[in-house]
Design a binder for these strands. Sequence first.
DNA 1: GATGAATGAGAATTCATTCAT
DNA 2: AATGAATGAATTCTCATTCAT
Lengths: 212, 212, 212, 212
Amino acid sequence: MTEKAAAKRAETPKRGQTRIQRQKRAAILEAGLTVFSEAGFRGATLDRVAAEAGLSKPNLLYYFPSKEAIYEALLRDMLATWLDPLRELNPEGEPVAELLAYVARKLEMSRDFPRESRLFANEILRGAPHMHDVLTGELRGLVDEIAAVIDGWVAQGRIAPVDSRHLLFSIWAQTQHYADFDVQVQAVLGGADYEGASRHLDTMFRRMLTPG
Amino acid sequence: MTEKAAAKRAETPKRGQTRIQRQKRAAILEAGLTVFSEAGFRGATLDRVAAEAGLSKPNLLYYFPSKEAIYEALLRDMLATWLDPLRELNPEGEPVAELLAYVARKLEMSRDFPRESRLFANEILRGAPHMHDVLTGELRGLVDEIAAVIDGWVAQGRIAPVDSRHLLFSIWAQTQHYADFDVQVQAVLGGADYEGASRHLDTMFRRMLTPG
Amino acid sequence: MTEKAAAKRAETPKRGQTRIQRQKRAAILEAGLTVFSEAGFRGATLDRVAAEAGLSKPNLLYYFPSKEAIYEALLRDMLATWLDPLRELNPEGEPVAELLAYVARKLEMSRDFPRESRLFANEILRGAPHMHDVLTGELRGLVDEIAAVIDGWVAQGRIAPVDSRHLLFSIWAQTQHYADFDVQVQAVLGGADYEGASRHLDTMFRRMLTPG
Amino acid sequence: MTEKAAAKRAETPKRGQTRIQRQKRAAILEAGLTVFSEAGFRGATLDRVAAEAGLSKPNLLYYFPSKEAIYEALLRDMLATWLDPLRELNPEGEPVAELLAYVARKLEMSRDFPRESRLFANEILRGAPHMHDVLTGELRGLVDEIAAVIDGWVAQGRIAPVDSRHLLFSIWAQTQHYADFDVQVQAVLGGADYEGASRHLDTMFRRMLTPG
DNA sequence: GATGAATGAGAATTCATTCAT
DNA sequence: AATGAATGAATTCTCATTCAT
């Protein structure tokens, strides 16, 4: 097989789908992300999603069986990348640098994928009706792992004493805040300021974590 | 008039209302807070609010002209106390202590008034359709004031250098997180842990703010 | 309490219902009977039922929560009287006369309540999705009882030998036929002929049952 | 042309059709019979028919122009054989034996072709919207013929006096009952019992028809 | 004040049928 | 012949709001 063919094959997200199916499904998910993240599950209407995707409503339901199916596909896709920055944290790296890099990556995600962040925030705010299993399963497992790493660093005195899980909450809360509470941030600052946010968070966590 | 009656009269929020009217309005707002904070504006139904308040739906609409009116009353009431902790920050006090006290008060509010926090979070997440003016007006003004105070403290070297506005975002994000993302927190920790959160945030902001 | 008041109370079918509720519910059931018996469950539309009952569609759903609820109420009401003729069969009576009277009563029901008969026929034809329990429970129990009576009569030589359960099927099939297959009967005969049917069935079962 | 080819050609129901066309049409009708007899016209969906026939929906509509066309073809095919047992009744034969043989054949058809029976029952129950002409035309004509034969037998005293048309209804009602009301029969008996039905009907009609 | 009754404007979903290839 | 794609016309059901008493 040529490299090109291999690449083509590799980018196929689902087997057995034609090009047009992939395109339309992608368009629907893109539109759905916009609408669901703005309006929430209940507030979103298939009419709006269809309009946004440039499809008729029944045609939309030709690709996804229900409104809920679109929403769940969005959550699934989101989760697939949502936890990546955390997974990239290197237990062998320099602790403070690793954690600051994680903060930076998370903030970048808030800047670059604010809709995903809001979709997630909304789901959690509603009590995570579609994601409870993931939270108590996959997420908790991953957090346990990372917490162990951080606890190790603390024990070795390589970072200042800290509650590892609450530290993660601090990182999540502050970085996601810039996406989820964007209107408030902009109202207060008179505009966005990711630069300032970046510097501030770097300072904050550096002081928090630098030992001694 | 006795003092008691005067006091009673004084606490009347709206003029021209009988006691029973106030009670019913309060019951509706109480029910509305529960329902709206759980389901969001679109997800909430007057049926549920009415049921929760123990009234018939038409009777509910006798006290409030519309669903939106209930929602807006809730936002208004919430705002009235929401910014209180910030207002209580004393420019004459000891800077680090003042700010840590503010953090503590905010965290307490998350613990004691999670419904209010979620109602607010939901409104902001939706783009603050009912609150934009408040954000750019009252809130921004108050923040400007407090930021000036903090900037003064920084200039005097009484707290470590910090971006005052982003500092406020940090405080809000982390404290509200424990109310808004409660399901996630509980899923990860296996239960609530306000004690731990309190200690963690105290440590965090102490290291952040303590000068030199 | 006066007798009149007692009578009034007695005729209340459901407690806690106002007069208008009873009237509207009755009108809906009446309309539903017509529509469902003509078109079947799937073929019936709430639009038609609402029109027939002189109500708006949402108003219809104010009285019954769903299409299915109307249908099930109809089946329940129908069953309540459907088996009455069979229950009236007197084990102490003269066997042939009793059975012929039952045949006559069943035929009268077909003539007087053809919609109920068709509603039932349609439900059974579909595999009794809403009534299976009743068939294997209440109906089977009642049939067992009556079959025992008939078997006793056979054993005593008071009627000619006969399979009691298949005899009941014969009665049901032939009497209900005049309601369920009415169009066919009328097409063949050029009109209805309950008189003739009555005489025919009387003859038929008399010859079948008269001993010796 | 070989005899075989001629035979093959002879059995072609429609001219101008290739073998594959006939096969597909047959598969569709077979699937349609299953689906329509189970769900009725309105309850049946082309999706189910297509799935059952192993075709795509558009391909199905390549062979039949519409849902109704399939349904009508089914009714037509069914009718072609439905009345055969009646036509086979031999006016020259021994009257009682002929009629009992007819009863037996009809019962066999109920056992062997219950889907056809239910399809027919459903159509009649709905008021025969697709078959009214057949009922008042072909069917009535055939019944008139047979009734004349039976009336002749009665006049000759070769069978007991009976209303010939109601006698036919009796036969149809009782035999078809075992197909159309199968669920009920099985619920009451705890299973099918064509043996018993056969003996019962033989007894019944023998007593009914045997003269003097 | 209170409530039973009613409704118009959606909203999600289904389904026969058509289109394009 | 065959099928993936598309759609218009229902159809059930929801819900904020109004009416009438």
